[in-house]
Write a protein that binds this DNA or RNA. Structure first.
Length: 349
DNA sequence: AGTGCTAGAACCAAGATAGC
DNA sequence: GCTATCTTGGTTCTAGCACT
């Protein structure tokens, strides 16, 4: 059907609010530029100026149910229509005209409610899964505190030392140019997440010749991001992935002595104390911050007994395994949701 | 080899403006 | 006046090079 019977509203003068900027409960907002989409159902009445955002109002509430429309906007059926129409060079955007002309299957209201409630339920399930995953991250932090206490107060009276004391070697990575078609994958800063995990996607590669032993990571190596913005400098993760893999020059590789656990060091650096230590020590110049290998090694921390570090590592691995399981389930949930969505909007649900 | 430093690419969102 | 499109600007990351 043609959607022109709905009101679509865009911008308004900043000082001159009118009906056009009155957003009500149940309206839907939709980003027209940048990350196109991300529809939101408004849950409070508010007046504000809208720009580059489409506002959907539902004048004919007996004909269209907003949650049904919301799910439609999120569906591939709608996105496909829009992706063919979106314009712009580097910056993609859709126009109001494009949105007005969206073709949407429109069954009777009761049917729309039924479909929306099925999709809502499926959506809730995957959100719950996502929350469970987030909880596991918190558990990781809590486990660290539980076992080792507050590192600043050091109530448990651990020996205090430097990260360097726990390492057998510290090396900078390769400064060779990474490409998409080389042989050996090379880890870059985007492969380390802020929360301290490896993220092995979006890989680039170097040639086998360039992948000298000194530029390769082994399982159990610590990777430390020496150059980045002030907030992100010092991102640290323990490598546990497949080999061989190389690492780039703006990462530092730390290899622990056998009696110490890389997970403990990473756990410390990823705790709130670790993060604030890193922020306070980095040398920040025009946007970029640096922590060199020497400074990395000089970071002071409590060094608890090996046994305890090993126990911590076991727990970390158990939590990560569980998280991996949940993430797999989440992928399945997402696929299921997509399938339901497909069915919903081609009339077979 | 290790390190500091910087240009600029990529991305994205908001502001500004041209044109109907 | 309204909409479509272009410009500006911020953030983050990439990549490389020069200095020690």
């Amino acid at each position: 059907m043609d959607f022109s019977e709905c009101n679509f509203i865009t911008e308004d003068d900043h000082n001159n609010f009118s009906k056009r900027s009155f957003v009500e409960k149940g309206d839907i907002l939709y980003a027209m530029i940048g990350t196109i989409g991300n529809p939101v159902i408004v849950d409070t009445d508010k007046i504000f100026s809208i720009k580059n955002v489409a506002l959907f109002k539902f004048n004919q509430k007996d004909k269209i149910y907003n949650r049904y429309f919301y799910h439609f906007l999120n569906s591939d059926v709608a996105l496909k229509q829009l992706s063919q129409l979106s314009r712009g060079g580097t910056q993609k955007f859709v126009s109001l005209g494009n949105l007005r002309n969206l073709k949407i299957p429109l069954p009777p209201l009761e049917e729309q409610r039924r479909i929306a409630s099925i999709l809502d339920k499926a959506d809730q399930i995957r959100q719950k899964r996502q929350q469970a995953i987030a909880k596991l991250d918190e558990l990781l932090q809590a486990t660290f505190i539980d076992m080792f206490g507050d590192p600043i107060k050091n109530e448990k009276g651990w020996k205090i030392g430097k990260i360097g004391d726990m390492l057998e070697s510290v090396k900078y990575g390769s400064s060779d140019k990474a490409t998409l078609d080389g042989e050996v994958p090379i880890l870059r800063m985007n492969n380390i997440t802020y929360s301290g995990e490896m993220y092995l996607a979006d890989l680039k590669y170097i040639t086998a010749d360039q992948a000298d032993e000194k530029y390769l990571v082994k399982q159990g190596d610590i990777l430390f991001n020496r150059t980045n913005s002030k907030e992100l400098v010092g991102k640290t993760a323990v490598y546990n992935g497949p080999e061989p893999m190389a690492y780039a020059g703006y990462l530092v590789r730390g290899r622990t002595l056998p009696e110490y656990m890389p997970e403990y060091i990473s756990g410390f650096l990823n705790s709130s104390w670790g993060k604030s230590t890193l922020q306070s020590m980095c040398k920040s110049i025009i946007g970029m911050a640096n922590i060199n290998a020497k400074e990395f090694q000089s970071i002071r921390l409590p060094i608890p007994p090996s046994d305890l570090q090993k126990q911590f590592t076991k727990k970390v691995h158990a939590i990560r395994d569980h998280k991996l399981k949940l993430e797999k389930q989440l992928v399945q949930n997402n696929e299921l949701f997509k399938a339901l969505q497909q069915k919903a909007f081609n009339g077979t649900l």
